[in-house]
Structure formats: C-alpha cells, structure tokens
C-alpha cells in the first residue's frame, strides 16, 4: 500500500479488485483457466503480438493495446478465424479488467501483482439466447451501450459492473451529477475525459 493512501478508501476498492484478480484464471464461458491466464499475460505485456497465429491472442493484444483501431471488419475476421463473438466478448472483458486493476495499482504506487494462477475446470459454453447482434459488433440482450456491451457473457458483465462501482460510481449512481467521492463529480469527469482522450476514445 502506498504510505499516504487512505486505508478506508483503499480497503473498499481492494475487496473488489483482489477478488477479481484472483479469479481471472478461473474457467469462463468460452475459455479454460489456462487460456484466460494467457490472455492476462498478453494484456500485461508491452511486447504483445499483434499478428499472432492464434486469433484469440491477436484479439487480446488488440483489445488491450490498440483498442481504438478495432473495427467491425476486425471482429468479422477474428470470427472467420474461429473466435466466435461470445469468446471475443470474454477476451475483451478480461483484458479490460486487467487494464483497470493495473492502472489503479500503478496510480497509487503499488508494485505489479503476481500473475493470477490458472484454476481447474471446463468452460460452460453457455449461450445467452436473448443476445443478438444490434448496432454494435457483438451480441447484446439490450441495445448496446457501455453497460450492456458484455451481456453475451454474463459473468464478465457482472464483473465489469462491480469494478465500475468500486473504482468510479455504480450505474445508478452515475445519475448523481453532484456526487462527491474523494473527488467532486467534475473532478472525476475531468480524469475520465483525459484518460479517454489519451486512449483515442471518444467515450
């Protein structure tokens, strides 16, 4: 822990991120624990392959390090190489959570975490019947939006929501434009806007 960090604030965040980090290597819907830990490794690597023979590795590298360059054609091509859209959604969920947790740790001056261990088990390959392609590139149950983008893989959508609530605001809490949470809402949004700008993301 950074010596100047507030223990109470950190504790509330750590409850969520420690649990999420420790289970990144658990089997998902479309990947084994070993496959997910390989996705984590690629997400953490500064020398990640861009044109890997393994399309799942290529997807992870793109989502982790060059997400702003991904297009509908990219996702189509990955699908043609065997990465079905739900599998792709799980990859995006894993790499995006790695980015969140590592950014937080680095921000408060914490050393990098040990890699999460792969856990035994088999992917459930559960298909969410109500998830369909809509305006975006992946199937969703509701109209695609930031909170619904991972709905085709419910555990990833739930993890995204929990992390969003711990690090920023709950989805319902976002309606409170005068919220104060260590920072004023305007200060939080200034941080958010600068991060998005630096990532070439207009979100």
């Amino acid at each position: 822990m950074h010596p100047d960090s507030s223990f109470a604030v950190l504790e509330a965040i750590d409850v969520v991120i420690d649990r999420q980090w420790s289970t990144l290597g658990a089997p998902g819907l479309w990947m084994t624990g070993e496959e997910r830990t390989e996705i984590v490794r690629i997400a953490r690597s500064r020398q990640a392959p861009v044109d890997a023979d393994d399309p799942a590795a290529a997807a992870a590298s793109l989502a982790a390090h060059r997400a702003a360059t991904i297009t509908a054609d990219t996702v189509d091509e990955l699908e043609s190489r065997g990465v079905r859209r739900e599998h792709y959604v799980e990859i995006v969920g894993v790499v995006s959570r790695v980015a969140a947790i590592e950014t937080f740790d680095r921000g408060i001056g914490r050393p990098a975490r040990p890699a999460p261990p792969p856990l035994p088990g088999v992917p459930s390959r559960h298909v969410v019947a109500a998830a369909k392609r809509r305006a975006g590139w992946v199937p969703t149950v509701d109209a695609i939006s930031p909170p619904t983008a991972l709905q085709a893989v419910p555990p990833e959508a739930a993890a995204q929501e929990a992390l969003h609530g711990a690090l920023y605001l709950s989805y319902p809490g976002m309606a409170d434009l005068a919220a104060v949470r260590g920072l004023s809402r305007a200060q939080m949004e200034l941080v958010a806007a600068r991060v998005s700008y630096l990532n070439d993301c207009f979100f």
Binding site: S96, A100, T103, F104, G107, M188
Partner: peptide, 8 residues
Amino acid sequence: AVAGNFQM
C-alpha cells in the same frame, strides 16, 4: 481508481 475504470 477513476483512471482505472476508464481504461476498462
């Protein structure tokens, strides 16, 4: 924390 969230 907010920066981490928006990285995600």
